[in-house]
Nucleic acid binder design. Structure first.
Length: 296
DNA sequence: GTGTTTGTTATCAA
DNA sequence: CTTGATAACAAACA
């Protein structure tokens, strides 16, 4: 599940390869979540240059330039099972032979492209970027600047690592809501970037029961939660994300935060803090992991 | 065949 | 208008 730390890791990986490079060829395969229509988008991207690679929450933003037009941006959302894996160009094409096996393998994804590859972006650097998505929930969309800014302000609140994510902000969004605290911190319009894994982890660190009604949380706990969210996101970025099943970084490698997980997918195992058995329940419509003893 | 997995949006109700 | 709850989306797996 690509959440903020995973998408940021991909962004950093791809930034090195793609900024300054231009698309030479784009192919979409068995994929509907493309806008505008696939052949049109593929055509537009040809000869467009990537001038910057940004991220807001879990959304990747490729700033483009084509024939002096700097008003277009390619948005890619990985949703649940999307991957963006870059494969370096091959200068070592010995004597007309086909490419060596290594050339078409990512570190963990196996062959590229594979049956889950739905877009192949080729660049003038010789490299190729593969968009893989087992469940096809992700999307690829071309947007102009005005439309992009509109979506960003309408749908994305402050990120945990931005200055605007203050204690008073967190306090204010919790204060008036009767929904479970987990639902509030998962809401991208209120805090951008948290997903199921880091929401559960942050609530555990803060000692808050995920099902607790948001407005009932005491100031001391809100402060703990604010700190926990920042800490867990920072630590997860350092670990290059969490690979539970599908997630890989921009080079096809796994993230290593799994070794720091304290509750996520640890149901029926002892709490690392108190020894009590970790439970799993449905909160805010999501599988939710927590320690009934440490999280009140 | 059933339930589960989850990021986001649509839909509906209050 | 806001909030909250729930289903839907696609595909795989147990």
């Amino acid at each position: 599940m690509p959440e903020l730390p995973e998408v940021e890791t991909v962004r950093r990986d791809l930034e090195d390869y793609l900024v300054g490079a231009s698309f030479t060829d784009v192919k979409f395969i068995d994929f509907k979540n493309v806008a505008p229509e696939a052949t049109f988008l593929a055509k537009y991207l040809e000869k467009a240059k990537v001038t910057a690679l940004r991220r807001k929450g879990k959304l990747l933003i490729f700033d483009l330039e084509k024939a002096g037009d700097t008003d277009k941006h390619l948005l890619i959302h990985l949703k649940m099972t999307g991957q963006l894996v870059y494969q370096l160009g091959t200068q070592t094409k010995a004597g007309g032979h086909s490419l060596s096996e290594l050339d078409t393998k990512s570190a963990v994804g196996g062959d590229l492209p594979n049956k889950y590859t739905h877009a192949i972006f080729s660049f003038d650097s010789g490299g190729k970027l593969y968009f893989n998505d087992l469940r096809k929930f992700g999307y690829i969309k071309l947007s102009d600047t005005a439309e992009l800014e509109k979506t960003l302000t309408a749908n994305y609140g402050p990120e945990p690592l931005e200055k605007s994510f203050t204690l008073s902000w967190l306090t204010s969004i919790l204060a008036k809501r009767t929904a479970p605290v987990k639902a509030v911190i998962l809401n991208q319009k209120l805090i951008a970037g948290l997903g199921n894994i880091y929401a559960d982890e942050a609530l555990f660190i803060a000692g808050i029961n995920p099902g607790m009604k948001a407005h009932k949380i005491k100031p001391a706990k809100i402060e703990a939660l604010h700190e926990a969210i920042v800490r867990v996101i920072k630590r997860a970025i350092k670990s290059r994300g969490t690979t539970f099943r599908n997630y890989v970084d921009g080079k096809g490698n796994k993230g290593s935060f799994i070794k720091f997980l304290q509750v996520y997918q640890r149901q029926k195992q002892p709490c690392l803090q108190c020894g009590e058995t970790i439970l799993k329940a449905k909160v805010a419509g999501r599988g939710t992991h927590y320690c009934p003893s440490c999280q009140k």
